[in-house]
């Protein structure tokens, strides 16, 4: 799979901008806040490594579940 370096770079820049922006608030935040904050950012960093357009995800899953029902609409 081809890695798109532009996306990764932009997402990394955005992530560090967000961290920088929230730094003051983050320093005094409770543990739960910090963990959630970091988890969401790591998730987005992970997603940026894939070619998202064609990566099987929620749409494929929903198509699998509701596909038979969707035939009604044809």
């Amino acid at each position: 799979m081809l890695v798109n370096w532009n996306t990764i770079f932009v997402v990394q820049v955005l992530i560090w901008l967000i961290v920088l922006f929230e730094w003051k608030r983050l320093k005094n935040a409770p543990k739960a806040d910090k963990i959630t904050f970091v988890t969401i950012l790591i998730l987005s960093a992970l997603l940026s490594f894939f070619q998202l357009d064609n990566l099987p995800g929620p749409m494929t899953f929903l198509d699998y579940i509701f596909g038979p029902l969707g035939k009604i609409m044809e």
């Binding site: 955005l14 967000i18 959630t36």
Partner: peptide
């Protein structure tokens, strides 16, 4: 759900995730 002390802190990380989600699996 996660018992955070305020909801402002996760807004920006979530919006970044949203931008990525808007491309996920929609060719």
């Amino acid at each position: 759900l996660f018992g955070l002390s305020n909801y402002q802190i996760t807004v920006f990380p979530l919006s970044l995730l949203l931008v990525l989600l808007s491309y996920w699996d929609i060719p």
